[in-house]
């Protein structure tokens, strides 16, 4: 699609790559330290904050990535 090619050149594409890389790093860390992270976040009591913070961090990186992803593909909201 020619529209997409144009969009690829823009800063939108760069942002998608940055957030995509950040998201990938986060998921890679989760995969690499699966046991440690799971043990740390499931200790209960005041450690309840750990999964909540992790959820916010992942949603920030991955949420931005997915948003730019659809934008870059040309699937945008009708204004």
């Amino acid at each position: 699609m020619p529209d997409n090619l144009a969009a690829h050149k823009g800063p939108q594409f760069t942002r998608m790559l940055v957030y995509g890389a950040l998201s990938l790093v986060l998921y890679f860390i989760l995969y690499l330290f699966e046991d440690e992270i799971l043990a740390f976040t499931s200790q209960g009591r005041w450690f309840f904050i750990a999964p909540v913070i992790l959820a916010f961090v992942f949603s920030f990186a991955h949420g931005n990535f997915t948003s730019y992803f659809w934008d870059t593909l040309g699937i945008k909201a009708k204004k």
Binding site: Y27, S42, G44, F48, T66, F69
Partner: peptide, 29 residues
């Protein structure tokens, strides 16, 4: 709800984040 369950250590963060990975693509769309 998450705070309540996480207080008892019941959240499997791996499952939550894997589902989140797919669902954020979906929710944007």
């Amino acid at each position: 709800g998450t705070m309540k369950f996480a207080w008892s250590g019941m959240v499997d963060i791996r499952l939550a984040m894997i589902i989140l990975a797919g669902s954020l693509f979906g929710i944007q769309l």
